[in-house]
């Protein structure tokens, strides 16, 4: 697997004295969808935030799209144009319309003309199934709509990898599916994805692999079928019983 899209090699990370990632070894192949789950505080967010350099690692190596990002002099902005990220809290820019949110990076970073960027933006809005909200401000959208705009905004940069950090956790239950559907479409189109989520239905249907983390370590790594049918570790069993029981 020399040509992995993302490869963690003995990655360690500390916040002060507190170790939050310990000896992580993981590889995500191009086109693969990896779901990361685990109890709160286990390091899931930190793990995927390392991939686009929002967090720095202190030990080991992390190669993204063929480039080690711990090498000094690597351009984070350049890396981030190729790695899209969707946050739990949507993070649309409230002072811009939906269209402006989506066009911002293509115009400012990739240097697209406004016309081109707008065309792409409208196509993307259609793809996330809200073509009629282009002129609205984020505050006038529902949570599910905002999160779909956030996905469109990330896709506007034509990334090779998409990172999702609990994209549905802040949503009312009736809106969760509209977001998961968009993510499912994306997976089917062959996007490389790392998804932190507790939506086990989504994991079962869409993921190629599930990673279970606890206390900063990868405790289990398996296909969804294997993981959900017979988790090997006690901690994973415990976690699954809690999460599936409600």
């Amino acid at each position: 697997m020399a040509d992995a899209a993302i490869r963690f090699r003995d990655v360690n990370k500390w916040f002060g004295k507190h170790q939050v990632l310990a000896d992580i070894n993981l590889a995500v192949s191009p086109g693969e969808v990896m779901v990361v789950c685990g109890p709160s505080g286990s390091g899931k967010s930190t793990l995927i935030r390392c991939v686009n350099g929002l967090e720095a690692i202190q030990g080991g190596d992390l190669v993204v799209l063929g480039e080690s990002i711990v090498r000094s002099g690597v351009s984070m902005s350049a890396l981030r144009t190729r790695v899209g990220m969707v946050f739990q809290s949507f993070n649309l820019f409230p002072h811009m319309t939906v269209l402006e949110n989506i066009m911002l990076a293509p115009v400012r970073v990739r240097g697209l003309s406004a016309t081109e960027a707008e065309k792409t933006a409208r196509t993307l809005l259609a793809r996330v199934r809200i073509p009629d909200k282009a002129e609205n401000y984020p505050a006038n959208l529902s949570g599910g709509q905002q999160q779909r705009v956030a996905i469109a905004r990330a896709l506007a940069m034509q990334p090779k990898i998409m990172l999702f950090d609990e994209p549905t956790s802040a949503l009312d239950p009736e809106m969760i599916n509209e977001v998961l559907d968009v993510m499912t479409d994306l997976a089917k189109e062959g996007m490389t994805m790392m998804v932190v989520t507790h939506e086990m239905g989504f994991a079962r249907r869409v993921a190629h692999r599930v990673v279970f983390m606890d206390a900063g370590r990868v405790v289990e790594e398996a296909t969804p079928d294997a993981f959900f049918a017979a988790p090997k570790s006690e901690r994973a069993k415990d976690f699954l019983s809690k999460i599936l029981s409600h």
């Binding site: 902005s77 350049a78 144009t81 993070n91 820019f93 002072h95 911002l104 956030a150």
Partner: peptide
């Protein structure tokens, strides 16, 4: 402004300066 607004801006590939100029300062 929540820190994540800044993160969202740089996560799209904006530089820190652009994130401030286009997102953080205007808000």
């Amino acid at each position: 402004i929540p820190r994540t607004q800044f993160e969202a801006a740089v996560a799209m590939g904006l530089t820190t300066f652009q994130a401030y100029r286009l997102v953080i300062v205007p808000i």
